[in-house]
Design a protein around this nucleic acid. Structure first.
Lengths: 161, 161
DNA sequence: TATTGTTATACTCTATAACTATA
DNA sequence: TATAGTTATAGAGTATAACAATA
């Protein structure tokens, strides 16, 4: 579906009698789903750019935050929290382990599973990443007042919870 | 990044002294970007399911709506409106043409380009798709009142516009 | 027999370079 | 030479089946 849009001022208006700058998607304008997608894409792109400095993807940042809040969790739990399938957790965790940000530890009574923990390095980096994410959030929503930002967050939670 | 979450009541709480039902992503809870992503995914999945009845993807629905509002536009314009690259427009339009929902017409002074139009079938189907999308929107946001829905839409537009 | 983590695989989405035909 | 559309291709992201080790 559409993700961003708006023509770059065509030489001649696409629709007679219409402002040449008008968005091309006016029929979709009343859909919350469409607005959500476009806003989400904007924030996501901003975050991707900021995390790239640390060679991390948003999913890896989320994983670090979830591990930090739930030290010792299993990969199946992490998969559920990230809403991805267990096989996708493997390369994600491999990357975090190769960079010494997280570790898999065989520490459970059930020897099939691992407990996942952040390393000291991971905890330190996560603190910086949280700051970066918060800055990215503010940067992408400069058009909103503080009150509007809080209201938006409240409404979004109400939708997905 | 995380898309949905919440553990399915683990036998033992992952974090001592914490409600076993508590979400695993509390550190991400204050980020609008995170809430946006989760809400967007919920609405997107709902829409995908509803459009599947007509063997269409959200991007194809958006394309139909944009063509309807801008009859005769070029593929480069459509690519911009959908925020995708021109090569991605080709299979998308091929599909719409093979189903006789849209047509490419060599009608411009510039013989390299096509004008894209909806067929009568496309216009008729689009009307139904718009209804389906509106229903999907409402269905996914039942937790909101009418006023909250309007406020959410207003705030989202403010963010991405 | 069921489950955890893993491998292999495939399908979609996305992005880039290069080609064609026009300009 | 530049542009519209196209082709080919490669990289992510995502999903499923099947396997090994353990329960």
């Amino acid at each position: 579906m559409a993700k961003s849009s708006k023509l770059a001022e065509p030489a001649e208006p696409l629709v007679a009698g219409t402002d040449a700058q008008a968005p091309l998607d006016s029929a979709l304008d009343d859909l919350i789903g469409y607005a959500l997608r476009r806003a989400q894409l904007k924030l996501f792109q901003n975050l991707i750019g900021r995390l790239a400095v640390h060679d991390l993807r948003p999913a890896q940042f989320s994983a670090l935050a979830i591990i930090d809040q739930n030290p010792g969790l299993m990969q199946a739990d992490l998969a559920k929290a990230l809403a991805i399938e267990p096989p996708q957790v493997v390369p994600l965790l491999n990357k975090l382990e190769s960079r010494a940000l997280a570790v898999r530890v065989r520490c459970k009574p059930d020897k099939r599973s691992y407990g996942i923990f952040l390393s000291k390095t991971g905890e330190t980096l996560l603190k910086e990443l949280k700051y970066i994410a918060a800055q990215s959030d503010l940067d992408s929503t400069v058009a909103l007042s503080g009150a509007e930002r809080e209201e938006l967050l409240r409404l979004l939670k109400k939708v997905y919870q």
